[in-house]
Nucleic acid binder design. Structure first.
Lengths: 154, 154
DNA sequence: TAAAAAGTGGAACAATCTTTCATGCCTGAA
DNA sequence: TTCAGGCATGAAAGATTGTTCCACTTTTTA
């Protein structure tokens, strides 16, 4: 699916990653191609799904979601269905921003953003530990976000 | 800094979070205000830094960054300067997409994206464990990305 | 080597953004 | 209650930008 990207495509990706609203004319100038070509290239990158989406990065504080936590989860190993059930439940929980199946002492790592600790506790008690197959969780509250969601190094 | 957002502002944020390139006219229609008002509102959200940036989400596979790992880090507690030095070094390492200072058994959690395990091992050996004040690291390789960087629930 | 396919830039056209302006709506003071 | 001030709103004009067309060049394939 992802085709070969030349130097120009990569420069477009890098620039749109920094500013997804950059005008096509500006983009073309910075990449040293004509506006028409730049437009076609960009469109192609979208159609080839090299650019999955262009999204506004909303400041969490502005929408009252200042509390961030990382949660390690261990599942019961009984059925492999429990993994699918757990993942489906995770997808239906909007507070969970990241969920990764990992190798090691945990099965999953979750990244969760909520309003405050009280909200987290409620979420944890009523929605996390009751997720399908959850045996144990360990919560790491984030005290400082040093880097969050940095653009890829293209 | 983040001012009061009414229902309309929040709807704009929610929609731009899904599609940061949505035409202003479309946005206005979906939010039931005029194009002029919508434009002003959106501009205000940018100026108030409620929208930090609009960024293209590049498919990691397309740029050969398919390997994801979560790394827990423990620092020497000796000097508090070592935390600042570590964080500065992290900021200068483009492969580190996330870095959060947490409470618990680890000091930091890192999210790292590289080409493959060989690249990760080189990064780990030559750039991670030599970061200022690092005592110990534990790596969790990601086997499946269930949810990655979901938009906020506004 | 030649034909076909794909990529390129300039220019015209269409669509979009941005500003202006007159109006209406709150808020607070008299 | 009444009035003035500040602020937000929508319609429309003007400025900017995106999109397509075309002739031409480069690359690929047979």
């Amino acid at each position: 699916m992802p085709e070969d990207l030349d130097r120009t495509d990569r420069r477009i990706l890098r620039l749109l990653q920094k500013d997804g609203r950059m005008a096509n004319a500006d983009l073309a100038r910075k990449v040293n191609i004509s506006a028409a070509t730049c437009h076609r290239r960009t469109q192609r990158l979208f159609e080839a799904n090299c650019i999955r989406a262009v999204r506004a990065q909303v400041a969490p504080d502005a929408v009252d979601l200042s509390t961030l936590a990382i949660v390690g989860v261990v599942l019961d190993r009984s059925t492999s269905d429990s993994f699918a059930a757990f993942e489906q439940a995770v997808r239906e929980t909007p507070e969970i921003l990241d969920c990764h199946l990992v190798a090691g002492d945990f099965d999953y790592f979750l990244k969760i953003r909520v309003r405050d600790m009280e909200h987290f506790n409620r979420l944890h008690a009523t929605r996390l530990i009751v997720l399908p197959g959850v045996r144990q969780t360990r919560t790491f509250f984030v005290m400082k976000e040093v880097v969050d969601n940095r653009p890829l190094d293209i």
